[in-house]
């Protein structure tokens, strides 16, 4: 164990911990939402299924990353490739997880598969993940504009977190300006405050 548990709790480290929390939080949450929406991995209420347990696993992953000596763990967008192949249960992620283990010893073998070989998979999974775009109310502009900003800024800023931050902020401003207060809840305002804080930090 090489991590410094006391030094990392100094006051000066709080902006670092906050930035890490915020980025990891929204990267993970967004990935869950993205994969769940695109693959319709949702429960009867339309919420991402097994959300609480998934988020606990995601949190434990970040904790053990600190102990083992790696940057934070997070849910992977690329999981959508397996879902597109028909993976629906935990067996898919167990298979993938087990396949990682031998590469502790065989890492040079990884270079057999070049990045141009997985690139077509990523591009085509992009096509698959675009499906929910049809469910955006493009005719209702107070829905469409914040949704569009959130969507387009993810690739343009190279950051899921940046996209979602601007989606939240523009949603709140537009909805309040047109008097649709019921579509802005207190939790969303709290997220807005943290988003603005994240932009400043």
């Amino acid at each position: 164990m090489k991590l410094d548990l006391i030094g990392s709790l100094k006051l000066a480290m709080f902006p670092v911990i906050f930035a890490m929390l915020f980025t990891d939080m929204f990267d993970s949450l967004s990935t869950f939402i993205g994969v769940a929406e695109a693959a319709e991995l949702v429960d009867e209420k339309g919420e991402p299924r097994e959300l609480k347990r998934s988020l606990i696993v995601d949190a434990i992953s970040t904790t053990i990353a600190g102990v083992f000596g790696s940057s934070p763990g997070t849910a992977y967008i690329e999981s959508a490739t397996g879902v597109e192949e028909g993976g629906r249960t935990g067996l898919t992620s167990i298979t993938a997880g087990v396949l990682f283990l031998p590469f502790m010893f065989l890492s040079p073998l990884l270079s057999i598969i070049p990045s141009i070989a997985t690139a077509p998979a990523l591009v085509l999974v992009g096509a698959f993940m675009m499906r929910p775009v049809l469910r955006i109310n493009w005719a209702k502009l107070d829905d469409a504009i914040p949704a569009f900003l959130g969507m387009i800024l993810i690739p343009l800023t190279y950051s899921i977190t940046q996209g979602i931050i601007w989606g939240f902020i523009s949603w709140t401003i537009v909805k309040l300006a047109v008097g649709k207060r019921t579509e802005v809840n207190w939790m969303l305002i709290a997220i807005d405050c943290f988003s603005i804080l994240a932009l400043i930090v």
Binding site: L29, S30, T31, F32, I33, G34, V35, E37, A38, G46, E47, P48, L51, I77, E78, A80, T118, A119, P120, A121, L122, V123, V125, G126, A127, F128, M129, M130, R131, P132, V133, R135, I136, N137, D143, A144, P146, A147, F148, G150, M151, I152, L153, I154, P155, Y158, I160, G163, I164, G167, F168, W171, E183, N185, M187, L188, I191
Partner: peptide
């Protein structure tokens, strides 16, 4: 997650789609 409006969730999924294609 539940506080995120459905419309923004669709936007996140599509935005990640564009992002992953861009990375590819």
């Amino acid at each position: 997650v539940k506080a995120i409006p459905k419309q923004l969730r669709f936007a996140i999924a599509s935005g990640i789609g564009l992002f992953i294609a861009f990375i590819g």
